[in-house]
Amino acid sequence: MDSKKLAQKAISLLDLTNLNDDCDDAAIETLCAKAQSAYGNTAAVCVWPRFVSKAKNCLEGTGIKVATVVNFPAGGDDVWGTVAETKAAIADGADEIDLVIPYHSFMAGRRGFAETMIVRVKDVIPADRRLKTILETGELNDPELIKDAATVAIEAGADFIKTSTGKVAINATPQTAEIMLEAIAESGRPVGFKPAGGVRSLEDAATYLTIAEKYMGADWATSDTFRFGASGVLDALIAAMEGQDAKAGEGY
């Protein structure tokens, strides 16, 4: 695939993200405008729960999904608080919920607790909306633990498994992508994959799409099965479409 086709495909798979602490309504308006690029729309925007309604209004009629985060970024243990957060986001119009699993508890051996949170959150999400589970793989660190967390999330009903919050030192890596995509392939279930944090260039996008093709086949990666979570990479992708050489902006 030539660079322009690759860039256009990557744009269509992007969850354009603003989870900055200083985000405000003006920033959401800017984000939603950027999501409607001259080279096609992004798959979604990902915003704090308090901005879901604003983003839905900005994107009405575009087909761009609105994703939001729950139990984010700490991955705490409050199951019912996270369920309540999810219900509120769905009521505000969220199309996709990105849930941070209670990874501290998972690392402490409480596999069943993580499974319970995923199941409870999944139960309050309508069938036409998606649940993405964030494993925080940079904190799990151990390949066996990452594989186990991916398997638990898949078996508990996640529609996607996602690497990271973008808020820790180590986020998406090719090595982690291999582990998670292998878990999806082995499960035989229709679960998507989302590398998030540190995807900053066309070359990064190509790396993850190549890994997805290795495990899932050449035609697998669509917006229903594969997303990039990033804030800065869109600039680099647009530069590639325009035949320029540019690095992504700073951010998630």
Rank of each mutant, 00 (worst) to 15 (best):
T176A: 14
A218L: 11
K162G: 03
W220P: 04
I179R: 00
S231G: 10
L237S: 09
L181A: 00
S187F: 01
A212E: 02
A185Y: 14
A183G: 02
G229P: 00
G217Y: 13
T210H: 03
I154W: 09
N171H: 04
R227V: 02
G217D: 10
Q175C: 05
T165A: 03
E203S: 15
A240S: 15
A149H: 03
A150C: 14
T176G: 04
A206V: 14
W220M: 00
G166F: 05
A177H: 03
E213R: 14
T151Y: 09
D224V: 00
T151P: 02
V152H: 15
K162Q: 09
T176S: 09
A206Y: 09
E155P: 00
V168R: 14
K167E: 11
D204V: 08
A172L: 12
T222F: 13
T163Y: 10
K167R: 10
D235L: 15
T207C: 15
G198P: 10
L202W: 02
A169R: 09
I161L: 02
K214L: 04
T151K: 10
R227Q: 11
A212N: 11
K167N: 03
T173L: 01
I179H: 05
I238V: 13
M216E: 10
T207N: 14
A177E: 01
Y208G: 11
E182I: 01
A221V: 05
F228P: 07
K214T: 15
E178F: 04
T165C: 13
Q175I: 00
A158I: 03
V191W: 09
A153T: 01
G198N: 08
R227G: 02
G217S: 01
G157L: 08
S231Q: 09
P174T: 01
A153K: 06
A169L: 14
A218Y: 02
D148R: 15
E178I: 05
V199D: 08
P174N: 06
E182Y: 04
G197E: 01
E182K: 13
T165N: 14
E213A: 10
A156K: 07
S231C: 09
L202P: 08
A230N: 12
V199E: 07
R200P: 13
G166W: 04
W220K: 12
V168L: 14
M216N: 11
V152S: 15
T222V: 08
A205E: 14
A240V: 06
D235W: 06
R200A: 10
V168H: 06
G232K: 08
T163E: 01
R227S: 07
A240H: 09
G232H: 09
T151G: 00
A205Y: 03
I179E: 05
E182A: 12
R189P: 04
G232M: 11
S187I: 06
T225Y: 14
S223N: 12
A212Y: 12
M216Y: 11
